[in-house]
Structures are given as C-alpha cells and as structure tokens.
Write a protein that binds this DNA or RNA. Structure first.
Length: 569
RNA sequence: CGGGGCGUGGCUCAGCCUGGUAGAGCGCCGCCUUCGGGAGGCGGAUGUCGGAGGUUCGAAUCCUCUCGCCCCGACCA
C-alpha cells in the first residue's frame, strides 16, 4: 500500500477532547474520528487494526468449535419483555419505535435473540451442546461515554452463547472458552490477567473477567504474587491473621466535641484506627442498614450489595442517616441504638477488642468496648476491600498486589436465567422435557484496540504488537519524488516484501523526511525501512525496530531475516 | 441524573472580567529556499465567535433560554 493513496489524516496537536493516551494517539494517528459522544468512525488504518483483532478472535473461536452467526442489531421488545429485561434494563437500553408504533430496541447484548433462535430449532439433547458466536456492533446508551473507544455507546463485541443439557457440559465448554481467551489475548501480545469476577444480579455460578493491565484501567484487580489467585477487587478476599487476645479494659464514655471522622477520633483518643469500629449507614433498596467496619477498612459496596441481597445499594445521605438512627453522623454506633435497624458487621470488625465507637449522642464516643460483654455480637459478613500486601487467601506464602485493569473479556456461566424465562427445553434420553443451561462469553473487540495502545506506546506514538499492527513494515522513501533511484528501489522493496507475505506501507508522499519519520512513529508499525540516496549508495537498506533507537544497515536477505521476528501476515 | 469545565477559521488556543465591529501558532493554497526527525521566507484563502432571544447607539464580550462536547461519582465488553 502506498501512503500517497491511503487516507491517513494525522494530527500534529492533540485534540482537546481526548484525555487517555489511547484516545489521543488513535485520533492523532488517523485511526478513528468521533461522530458524536460515544460514536466513532473507523478510518482505513483503524479498521485494519480492528480487523486484525477480529481475525484472531475468529480463528480461536472456530478452533474450539464455536460457530459464527450474525444476529440483528434491532430486536423486538417482546423478547425482552419475555425475559423480564425490558423493565430491568433501564435507560441504557435504547428503545425505538417503527412506523407501526411497534417497540424495538438496539441490542446491547443478544441473550434473548439467541435463545429465541435456538429454542425454535433445538429440540433434542442430541443437538447439544452447541456454541454460537457473532462479531457484531452493540449499542448501550451509556450514562457517560468516555475515553474514546474504551467506553463508547456503540462498540464492536464478540459474543458467544453455549447451550447444554448438563452442568458438566457447560463447565467443559466454559473451560474451553477460558483457554481460547487465554490464547487470543496472548496472540494479541497483551499483558493480561484472568480474574474471578462478581456474578452480579444475574447470579450465575462462575464468572471470570479478562483484564489488560494498564494504569488507566477502570477496574482494580487483586492478584497473588505467588500463586495464580486473581480476583476483581469487588470480590477479592485475603487471609487475615487474628489478633492476640487482650485483657478487657473498663468501658467508658468520652466527650469528643466535633469529632466526626475516624482520623479525628483516632487522633483525639490517641488510639490507632484499627481500634475503632465505624458505622456506615447505607440505603439497601431505599431502606437504611447499618454496616460496621474496622476504622481503617474500606467498605466494598459490591460485597455489601451481595451480602444484603439488595438490588440497589448506596450510601445514605447525612440527613437520611440521622433520620434513621436518631443520632448525628459521626457519633452513630452499634451499642444501644435508639432505633431498631438491621446491622451487619464485617467479620474483621468483630475481632477488634477494646474498641471505640460512637455513643449515639452528639459529641460522645465509647472506648474500650468488647463484643459480647458490652453489646451483642452482630451478624458477620465480608464487607471490606482487601489491600495490597495482605496474605493470599488461596496459597500459604503469597501476598496480594493490586493493579488497574481494562476489562476486555468476560466468560460467564449463566445457568437457566434465560432458558427458563423463555422456556427453552429439549427432550433428554428418557423423553422428558429439560430446561437447558447456558453460558455466555464476550470480548470487547473495539475496546481491545484501545487497550492495546494503552499498554504499548511511547512519547512518539503507538507501538503496535505485531499481531495488531495495521501494516507490518513501513518503508520511508526519502526524497523519492526527486530521486528516481530511491523511488524505484523503494517500490521494488515494497513489492518484494508484499510477495514475501508482509503487509507493507510505502511512504511515497512528497514530504520532508522529518514528517515521514514522525508519521511512521505515530502510527506505530513494528518495522521501518529507510530507502535514501545515502544508503542506496552503500548498497543496503536502513532498518530500525519501532521499539529500538539504533539503525542497522542490511542487505535484502538480512532484512528478511530481521523481519522474521515480526510475523509475516 | 447530580457536580465541575468548555464551545472563537480544519487543529491548539488568545480575546470576554472592564462592550467599540475578530487574532496568533499549526494546517491549507501559490512561489522561493531547504532536503535524515512534524524546517525557513514571501504572498494568499478560510470565521453565522455553537444556536435563539434579550439589554445597548453598538454584543465574541453583559443577561435569559437552548444545543453540543469534555471531566468527576452509580453499569458493563
């Protein structure tokens, strides 16, 4: 491909709208352009990268027996009403009407459609298991689209759905998909982790997320330095050592004027925050609940939501908290509560001895309280977020680390959530009707493009992993418009390399060398070859790896050997 | 949906506070020079100052409404 024939509108300056490096570089390199909030056009260069991701995904999906189909973007409301999600899904589901006033939506996902498809066609256990997938544009009317391709409203996703008679069959497909995902992200050259994930309201059994590690990631993921334990912070656990028993001290009330925060409380009472049991008031489905945590621990809202089996959970406002407890925020505590409210304690809060907590009266705290002696033990749950450095819950020796991750894949055992609601059954070998069990498996294809950049860039531009690069080799013809020798040599090299199976971008534009180099660095092709009068006079080509800073003078054979490092396309 | 910020030429931004009839750099077009890291010179084109209404002799600037975009909090690939 000749650069003079390719639409690559690069930008010298960073557009103000872009915050993330991936967003900035994809815009500057002429890969994508924004149409409206969360909506992007793929330009030739960007589309080539997107297709590369799709190709790897397709190959690995096909390889493990999944079959590609393509379902509509527009879906009838009836199916969503049948599954119950028409009500459940909320405004993220973009609803539209056709000219007959019939209701439809733009598909944010395809469980309903695929279940409807297969319940019509699959009637016997002999036809199971089956695993179908598509690579399709999804639409979710996100509350806040941001970060360019990372969280668009319209995006490309690979979604697969498997159907089984037995849980064991589902488990085996789940494993196969897990393995396929591992191969996919490895082939794409990404530094990633598979982590145990929250199954959320859908309540399936098993779920793993695949995260690309990057500081800009929206999720916090916890992993063991020693074994392969890894989990989303939303549900990660750690092994906490117990405290040595202490002699109980005499409980007393202390005047603490204006002391509302744990930090202030610790300072005034000259105790560590670990000696404080704090009380957090939350609204679980709009009803107040008290949560107890050790002073230095952080409440994990996802864990709390699950522990309370709530649909929605949020912190109470100051007014709500005082209204519910009859005491001002900062002085609320579990002992002698003026109102009868549900209380749930993080298990660690129940191990604190001689602790301080609010006395449910303004400007008054208790010190030296002990569970059992001064107040009844509260119900226990896991409510705290783990912290880096704590011990791994799975192995004996490891400690936990926390990093940011970009979720690019999710595998999920759905169970009967949709098959039951939509009545998808097959006959088993005894002729009995059985509800099938399902799994679903997603990859954010367009997000992978952004995530890859987020992980591979330098101050000059993108450094595409070989499997993602829009072209493998970039040839810079220096002054090719003035030197027929350079032009001819560059053309010949271009043709030879393409014949050898490489994708090649020849920069034959009438530009100054500096511009050509800057463009090449920006768009991030793995290999660069310079053809100029200067090197031609020496009978060689000048080669440079995008990641390296040194030039090598090579003849054609040596050049080929050098390129073998980056896979031919 | 709350909270914060921004809309001025293709891009990045100044001008707005304190109204007086629109500017810089980059980009674009032409010519010259230059020719290995987004060069230099000369000349040129390009603006409903996001939109509507209002105040005023006069509005990019002040007021009201509206639209769009970005950033911070609850979802998900």
């Amino acid at each position: 491909m000749r650069a003079s024939q390719l639409f690559i509108p690069t930008l010298k300056e960073t557009p103000a709208e872009a915050e993330l490096v991936s967003h900035q570089l994809l815009l500057r390199g002429g890969f994508v352009r924004r149409l409206a909030s969360g909506l992007y056009t793929w330009l030739p260069l960007g589309l080539r990268v997107l297709r590369k991701v799709e190709r790897v995904v397709r190959e690995e999906m096909d390889r493990c027996g999944a079959q590609e189909i393509l379902m509509p973007v527009v879906q009838p409301a009836e199916l969503w009403q049948e599954s119950g999600r028409w009500e459940q899904y909320g405004p993220e589901l973009l609803r539209i009407r056709d000219r007959h006033e019939r209701e439809f939506c733009l598909g944010p996902t395809h469980e309903e459609v695929v279940t409807d498809l297969l319940r019509r066609e699959i009637h016997s256990y002999r036809q199971l298991p089956i695993n179908v997938y598509q690579i399709q544009t999804k639409f979710r009317d996100e509350i806040r689209p941001r970060f360019g391709l990372m969280r668009g409203r319209e995006f490309v996703m690979k979604d697969a759905y498997s159907f089984h008679l037995e849980a064991a069959s589902l488990e085996s497909t789940y494993q196969a998909m897990f393995a396929a995902y591992t191969r996919i992200f490895t082939r794409l050259g990404l530094d990633f982790r598979a982590v145990e994930a929250d199954t959320g309201a859908i309540g399936g059994k098993r779920s793993h997320e695949f995260h690309v590690l990057a500081d800009s990631g929206e999720d916090a993921i916890v992993f063991c330095h020693h074994c392969d334990y890894a989990a989303n912070l939303e549900l990660a656990q750690s092994r906490l050592s117990g405290e040595a028993p202490e002699a109980p001290l005499a409980a007393e009330e202390v005047t603490t004027p204006g002391i509302r925060s744990v930090a202030a409380q610790a300072e005034m009472l000259k105790i560590s925050a670990a000696r404080i049991v704090k009380t957090v008031v939350v609204m679980a489905d709009e009803k107040p609940v008290l949560l107890l945590l050790r002073g230095d621990d952080e409440l994990n809202l996802v864990k709390a939501t699950n522990a309370l089996a709530a649909k929605g959970l949020r912190l109470a406002t100051l007014e709500e908290a005082e209204e519910a407890c009859g005491a001002p925020v900062g002085f609320i505590g579990p002992k002698d509560l003026p109102r009868d409210l549900p209380i749930l304690a993080d298990q660690r809060a129940l191990t604190v001895q001689n602790f301080s907590t609010g006395a449910n009266v303004a400007d008054l705290h208790w010190i030296n309280l002990n569970w059992g002696r001064d107040l009844p033990l509260a119900a226990a749950a896991d409510l705290r977020s783990v912290r880096a450095g704590e011990a791994c819950p799975r192995c004996a020796t490891g400690t936990l680390g926390i990093r940011r991750g970009i979720e690019v894949g999710h595998v999920f055992q759905l169970g009967e959530r949709y098959s039951k609601a939509m009545n998808m059954t097959v006959l088993d070998e005894t002729g009995r009707d059985r509800t099938v069990t399902m799994g679903c498996y997603g990859i954010g294809v367009s997000r992978v493009v952004a995530a890859a950049v987020e992980q591979h860039f330098d101050d000059r531009g993108i450094l595409w992993p070989a499997a993602l690069a829009p072209f493998t080799v970039g040839i810079v013809a220096i002054n090719g418009r003035k030197s027929p020798e350079v032009a001819a040599a560059a053309e010949m090299l271009h043709d030879q390399l393409e014949a050898a199976g490489y994708t090649v971008l020849l920069d034959d534009r009438d530009e100054r060398p500096g511009v050509q180099f800057a463009t090449m660095d920006l768009i991030g092709l793995p290999h660069r070859v310079v053809v100029s009068d200067r090197v031609l006079a020496q009978g060689v080509f000048e080669y440079r790896d995008r990641r390296g800073a040194d030039n090598m003078h090579l003849n054609y054979e040596e050049l080929l050997t050098q390129l073998k490092g980056g896979e031919p396309s």
